[in-house]
């Protein structure tokens, strides 16, 4: 969307660039030509409100969070009532079987919910790019799932996948197949969450890809056509390589967001009956890292351990983002 926008240069790669390539590719022209020095007072004034808020609500919390992870924090005692416990929270974290389960769950949801989704998005983008009619209708239709609230969508899917009388199982039964326990089987639960993510984000990514495709100059395709490349060859040898920055960008963003999945499992499986203190569904099959963090921090009120979990989540996400970049670079070398 956005990215199709006017100034071609700020195309989809631009967003990627802001995360990755940053200043390298674009020289910023200082707006002081002709030797007349612009007054800097208003410039600082302009960035002050943002940075004041940024300092209070991002910088301070991050530092505070690191401090917290070394504390046994007393909820009612406040900062004064907390006790320094060294690395104990982290010792617990590495031994914590539940956190390990949450990592595995999150990774599986990531794999199931990211790669098929991005592949489908590429196909959709290529298709939209190739048609001339209904282009903007397709964009809207594919983008629509992304603006709906996750809570509402999760409620829809919860009803669709409901075990005995949900539409999916009814359809399976109609085909003579047996139903799947979508909301109780640990694997099926992850599939449901991944399906939800795919449904909501496929169109969004397709539109990013589309914008990237439209930024590819027609001459490149003409040259390829002159060399005898058909549409499929053109897609593999022209479109895909030129889309690499956008693909990397979407993969990184999808990795970051799916590894931090929270709302879907929280709404589907968050609260159970009074007797069963579990969350994340039966067998904690959909207990994600962030859901576990939420439980420990705001249900058990163990802020110190919660902060340690948050650091653990960050570490896991970082590892996989780095892997993404590494893979992208290996591709470069070839």
């Amino acid at each position: 969307m956005t990215l199709t926008a006017p100034s071609g240069a700020a195309g989809p790669g631009a967003a990627a660039a802001s995360a990755g390539r940053g200043r390298k590719n674009r020289l910023i022209r200082p707006a002081r030509t002709g030797g007349s020095q612009q007054r800097l007072g208003p410039v600082y004034l302009a960035i002050t409100p943002f940075f004041a808020l940024f300092g209070v609500f991002v910088l301070v919390p991050v530092v505070f969070s690191i401090w917290l992870s070394f504390q046994k924090y007393s909820v009612l005692g406040g900062i004064g009532g907390s006790e320094f416990v060294g690395l104990r929270n982290f010792e617990f974290l590495v031994q914590d079987a539940t956190f390990r389960r949450a990592i595995v769950n999150s990774l599986l949801i990531w794999v199931l919910g990211t790669f098929p989704m991005l592949a489908m998005a590429l196909v959709v983008a290529a298709m939209i790019n190739s048609v001339t009619k209904l282009k903007s209708f397709y964009r809207l239709a594919y983008f629509l799932p992304n603006v709906t609230s996750i809570v509402a969508v999760t409620l829809f899917f919860g009803a669709l996948f409901s075990e005995q009388f949900g539409l999916i199982n009814q359809a399976l039964a109609g085909l003579g197949l047996s139903g799947v326990p979508w909301l109780t089987d640990p694997w099926a639960m992850k599939v449901v969450v991944a399906t939800l993510i795919t449904w909501q984000w496929c169109g969004y990514n397709a539109i990013l890809y589309l914008a990237g495709m439209q930024a590819i100059p027609g001459e490149v395709y003409e040259a390829a056509a002159l060399d005898g490349a058909g549409p499929v060859r053109q897609f593999w040898s022209v479109t895909l390589p030129l889309l690499r920055p956008v693909i990397l960008f979407t993969t990184v963003i999808s990795t970051i967001t799916t590894l931090q999945t929270f709302t879907e499992p929280q709404v589907l499986f968050g609260s159970n009956t009074a007797v069963n203190p579990n969350s994340g569904g039966p067998g904690q099959g959909a207990l994600t890292m962030v859901l576990y963090f939420y439980q420990q921090a705001f249900n058990n009120n163990d802020y110190g351990y919660g902060a340690a979990i948050a650091m653990g989540v960050f570490a896991v996400v970082l590892v996989f983002v780095v892997i993404n970049f590494r893979l992208a670079r290996t591709g470069d070398d070839r």
Partner: peptide, 13 residues
């Protein structure tokens, strides 16, 4: 940095 890293401190703030 992931958002939840600052969730607890933001709550305390």
């Amino acid at each position: 940095l992931p958002a939840q890293l600052s969730l607890i401190p933001q709550f305390l703030i």
